[in-house]
């Protein structure tokens, strides 16, 4: 063989070298990392027909949402593991600082006991709801057809654990001031039986059992999460401020930064899928399918909010504004 036939070292991975520009750290470590998309007959390298291979072939590869190259997706934030922790350690330092300062000022003692009762019923049970977001995002992580998507879903799952953790922390703290409101004891009862929560519980139980990955993504990120964020974070944060609960308002504002990031990545993914004819209809169809449950959940929760007659309308408006921004 001649010298010319011998492969020479490249400046980067061979799969990135064709593009003739220096790859970023994000691209080096995030692009084309899954290997379960290499063989359409056997996502995993055992018998092609084992149940898990059938699961991936049916629920991932045969979804109605189509794209020729899912690996073309890029997270607009280009977050890698290293920068995710830098970002969120900074955010946690801020939030733990809030907890500290408000505790030193005896914030909870200044809260109206009636508001504390509202928190016990309408705020602290949210740890169950946030946990469903954590679980549902972990499903998107394991089923998505490109590593640039699975990374976003993994960070989203971890962010949901973050929201859950804040809620658990505040539950404990509130229980120290308000010993008779059922903090730390009654959350599961409210989550399972209180009419305010049943809409969101029904929505998330059904999202969690949606196995088609693209429908699960649309139901979670384009419908359920926006509904939950507009209601539980934005609207309830406003209500908190109006009830002298400055801490909760600042906490939900911080959590909304995560929500904004989640909307940004999924918006970029939706935009990429719109390159292919037919996908807009598929996405719109799924949104239409899931909207009634989200609307019912929003209405049920907002009906329980004290003295905020337009809560459901503004929460719904916020969700629809986001959906409209997708350009479907």
């Amino acid at each position: 063989m001649s010298e010319a036939d011998v492969l020479k070292p490249l400046k980067t991975w061979s799969h990135l070298a064709k593009r003739r520009r220096k790859p970023s750290e994000y691209e080096i470590v995030s692009v084309n990392i899954l290997y379960n998309t290499r063989d359409a007959s056997a996502p995993y390298d055992l018998d092609p027909n084992i149940p898990m291979n059938q699961w991936y072939k049916k629920f991932r590869d045969q979804t109605a949402l189509k794209h020729d190259d899912w690996n073309a997706f890029r997270d607009p934030y280009e977050l890698v593991y290293r920068t995710y922790n830098m970002l969120q350690d900074g955010q946690e330092t801020y939030v733990q600082g809030l907890f500290n300062q408000f505790n030193e000022r005896e914030h909870d003692k200044a809260l109206d006991p009636q508001w504390a009762g509202t928190l016990a019923r309408l705020y602290t049970p949210a740890r169950y709801l946030f946990h469903t977001l954590q679980m549902a995002s972990a499903y998107i992580q394991q089923m998505s057809p490109a590593s640039t998507i699975t990374n976003c879903a993994a960070f989203q799952s971890a962010d949901s654990l973050r929201w859950l953790s804040h809620t658990a922390y505040r539950t404990k703290e509130l229980s120290l001031t308000f010993t008779d409101k059922g903090f730390g004891a009654d959350e599961r009862k409210y989550w399972e039986t209180d009419p305010a929560w049943q809409g969101f519980r029904e929505l998330m139980e059904k999202v969690l059992t949606t196995w088609d990955w693209a429908e699960a993504l649309v139901a979670l990120n384009l419908v359920a999460k926006p509904a939950i964020e507009e209601t539980l974070l934005r609207k309830f944060g406003d209500v908190a401020r109006h009830n002298g609960d400055t801490l909760l308002g600042m906490l939900t504002d911080n959590q909304l930064l995560d929500a904004t990031r989640h909307r940004t990545w999924v918006t970029a993914l939706v935009k990429m899928t719109l390159e292919k004819p037919g996908n807009a209809e598929v996405i719109k169809g799924w949104i239409a399918k899931w909207e009634p449950l989200a609307e019912k959940a929003t209405q049920a929760f907002c009906a329980a909010l004290p003295d905020v007659p337009d809560a459901a309308a503004t929460a719904t408006q916020g969700r629809h504004d986001f959906q409209r921004s997708l350009g479907l």
Binding site: Q96, F99, N100, N103, E104, R127, Y128, H131, L164, S165, A168, Y169, T171, K172, E173, G184, R188, W191, E192, R201, E202, E205, K206, L208, T209
Partner: peptide, 24 residues
């Protein structure tokens, strides 16, 4: 510091099982 200790709220953060009724 007036922050709670980690174990004060750790158990709550892992008390998240519920009984589903809209699905089995």
């Amino acid at each position: 510091m007036a922050n709670l200790g980690r174990l004060d709220w750790y158990d709550l953060a892992r008390t998240t099982n519920w009984t589903p009724t809209y699905v089995q």
